[in-house]
Write a protein that binds this DNA or RNA. Structure first.
Lengths: 360, 360
DNA sequence: CACATTAATGTTATCGAAAACATTTCACAC
DNA sequence: GTGTGAAATGTTTTCGATAACATTAATGTG
């Protein structure tokens, strides 16, 4: 079968323990022996057996991630952040994906990771406060870090400033003199989505603005598209759309463009996330940036730090969000304000067409 | 520390071997004993130790994936397909991500997975034929499956019909009476990108069409955007753009829209991949679909099947691509053909504006 | 009733690496 | 030259689960 210490030891003419010393970089091995062992390792193509290492060491130097579907761009970035930081700290990363956020599935995923003897677990799945606390209680041998769990939970968490970010979006649209708002939220089960919606709602009612309708999307472009089509089919009148992520905002823009409703003038749109694509939407999207990568990185950093702390202090870190203003929002053009200018353009265009028509 | 068989056995009043029999679902255990053991397992919250299992069983029932960055949407879908199929066949999945496609990194990743005693490895990183063959040769104890490796390599592979798909895109644009083509490729290191470019080139030269310029992008929207800006800055004239993926096509569309160059009329654009967003671009993108999920799934399916085959037969599966026609392509409007129609529209618009202007 | 058969369970050895402990060798001090 | 300590290496035991083998008890058969 596979090459083990025994084979290496035999070839190098030493004991297995000496081989172990070499692979672990112990300093009490003579240079000549070390060389001989390393040569044997290379010659045989020795690869350590993680299972055996885990067993004898007791710990695995591995961090587990329980995550939503990585096909969601934000999720993939968070996972990247986690992996990267884990790797930097000398940890491996084991990823377990849960399709839906059924609690049983999540527990099973954690059990799966626990069976791999992971030392830490980062959970990036929407959970209620109770669920998070229950997990910590149930899996006492594991150290948890949660991402985007409700604030004030008695667990370690790292969170984006969803509510504040949402409020900034509203404030910006109010500054754009918008009055009637359409909301497109994420799935209600998502903590992030709930927080954003709450932020929107708070700020809108506080400023006496009108919420025309609220649609629950599923994060992808189609749900944004369908929301707008439905709203327009119902002849609802709005001059601003708040969208819970950029991908749905793409669908929103598509529907508006398709129907010839001018963005940003007639309807302004603000997204959330600032994914790299959103700068290239038509028009480029005003959005609220959150730093997914940093979220993942900080989750790991704080988790590893927290174990050195006293047991009853939690890491509760909230990362800032910030408004990125692009062309999908603007102050409403007063009717007729630019009309003369547009008229001039039209005349010019007309003349051009006319002449080309005559030439044919 | 953690709960082991010993603890369970003691509580249930049986031997550890009996506990093992229960957890492995052996049939020669009396129902009462089984119940007693299961109760003990639940009471203690026993979780098996994968390392120990691996060690004693010899095999891990795990499949390794070496993959590019999962932040690329297509990659994430492939990984999903692999995981899903592996899971279905009773295998776990260990993911190792390599940042760049440096060969040393890839080898290290495989070694890492091998140390976890994976039984199979799916490689989704651009490799040359030689590299792929070398890996198979070096890691004799592993069973490999490659995704998108050059055809006719002497290894197992699953591949999308890049070249054919690319040709379909060209044929479609030729049917749209396009003459001057701009190319935006993916990174040259990518096998998929090379195959697509080759397909474009072949079909274009065969039909005597003009390649105005070729830009090498890095898969993201910005590189598509920059390509167009550069081409226009150099006053290049083209009426069709072939783009190696949809995300870059988004950037292409953005640049064209921004400059008021009408898509599809003045310039038609075809992407590649058919990611879910592309139906919601402005305008919705004509593109070549490839089924990433199926690619991942088939990779695993064939890999598991192949080990039952004779050693010197390779699985070499090529999955079809298909053209999805949307609004980013069209037959070129003959100058003046629709002019009268447009003129009528203009007149209507003018009247509307005029009246609103007078009202103010 | 003695003996074969099977069901249910227990005992021991094993996987590969590493920790704990043991031994050997050599250098140096007194 | 004997004792002390450190460096280099070897031996034994351990981790947790399981395969291989061993035992016991119960059942059935001629």
């Amino acid at each position: 079968m596979s090459v083990t210490f025994k084979d290496v030891a035999k070839l190098a003419g030493v004991s297995t323990q000496t081989v172990s010393r070499v692979t672990n970089g112990a300093d009490n091995v003579s240079p000549e022996t070390r060389d001989r062992v390393n040569q044997a390792i290379n010659a045989l193509g020795y690869i350590p057996n993680k299972g055996a290492q885990m067993l004898s060491r007791g710990k695995s130097k591995t961090l587990g991630i329980v995550s939503l579907d990585i096909a969601l761009h934000g999720v993939a970035l968070i996972v990247n952040g986690v992996r990267q930081q884990a790797y930097e700290k000398g940890y491996g990363a084991a990823l377990s994906i849960v399709e839906n956020n059924e609690f049983g599935r999540i527990k099973a995923a954690i059990r799966e990771l626990a069976s791999q003897q992971v030392d830490y677990i980062v959970v990036n799945v929407p959970l209620t406060q109770e669920m998070a606390e229950q997990l910590v209680e149930q899996f006492t041998s594991l150290n948890f870090m949660f991402i985007d769990v409700p604030e004030h939970s008695k667990v370690n968490y790292v969170c984006a400033e969803h509510t504040e970010g949402a409020k900034m979006a509203v404030q910006h649209l109010i500054a754009c003199q918008r009055e009637n708002f359409l909301l497109v939220t994420g799935p209600n089960a998502s903590t992030g989505s709930s927080l954003r919606r709450a932020g929107w709602r708070d700020e809108l009612t506080q400023n006496g603005k009108n919420i025309v309708a609220s649609y629950e999307g599923d994060w992808d472009a189609q749900s944004g598209y369908l929301a707008i089509r439905d709203a327009l089919a119902k002849k609802q009148s709005f001059d601003a759309v708040l969208v819970a992520n950029d991908q749905m905002a793409l669908g929103v823009l598509c529907a508006l463009n398709e129907l010839g409703i001018s963005v940003p003038d007639k309807v302004s749109v603000v997204g959330f996330d600032n994914i790299s694509d959103s700068a290239f939407f038509t028009p480029p999207l005003t959005t609220v940036e959150q730093d997914f990568l940093a979220l993942g990185q900080q989750a790991v950093k704080r988790l590893l730090d927290s174990t050195e702390q006293s047991p009853h202090s939690y890491c509760q870190l909230i990362l800032p969000t910030r408004l990125i203003v692009r062309s999908s929002t603007s102050v409403k053009t007063k009717q007729g304000e630019n009309a003369q200018e547009i008229l001039n353009h039209l005349d010019k265009a007309r003349a051009l067409l006319q002449s080309s028509l005559e030439r044919n």
